[in-house]
């Protein structure tokens, strides 16, 4: 994102893995942090600290990035974003997504983790096509 600042945009959709006990709550945490303007800060912490994604850890992360923890806790426990997450999940199923991460770069599907150069090649091709 740094290398292509101003040229590309990243949109995250949630597809919590049902066999992971904590992934649904982690999605709630990211969106609850987003309510306070800190989605990306929480998103990065979740990726960095996975699999420590239990409720206590999430509340700790909320404090770490300066959220109103009481408000965050209410949102998390009340599953305030369950409708959004379910909508994203249905979208993922409709798109035939079976693995995470799956990225769509201008519609080009990339399944699984890839080296940076793999993404760079596709981004460069798409930027060239858009010019």
């Amino acid at each position: 994102m740094k290398e292509y600042r101003g040229k590309i945009r990243l949109v995250v959709k949630h597809f919590p893995y049902r066999y992971r006990d904590l992934s649904l709550m982690a999605s709630e945490a990211a969106l609850s942090a987003g309510d306070q303007g800190k989605f990306w800060e929480m998103h990065r912490l979740l990726l960095r600290n996975s699999p420590r994604l239990d409720r206590g850890s999430l509340l700790g992360y909320a404090g770490e990035i300066g959220l109103n923890v009481k408000k965050f806790t209410g949102s998390l426990d009340g599953k305030a974003h369950s409708g959004n997450i379910e909508r994203d999940r249905q979208l993922a199923l409709a798109l035939g997504i079976y693995s995470t991460p799956t990225l769509f770069i201008n519609g080009r599907r990339v399944v699984g983790e890839r080296p940076y150069e793999y993404f760079r090649r596709i981004v460069e091709e798409e930027l060239a096509a858009a010019r």
């Binding site: 893995y17 066999y19 079976y98 693995s99 399944v111």
Partner: peptide, 27 residues
């Protein structure tokens, strides 16, 4: 397509044999 077939539940046969990439992974 079932990720249960991997030890940590992150991979299926389709992780490396991706339908959109002619059942390869393009790497």
């Amino acid at each position: 397509f079932d990720r249960r077939l991997s030890g940590d539940g992150t991979m299926s046969c389709a992780s490396c044999h991706i339908p959109d990439q002619a059942y390869t992974d393009g790497q």
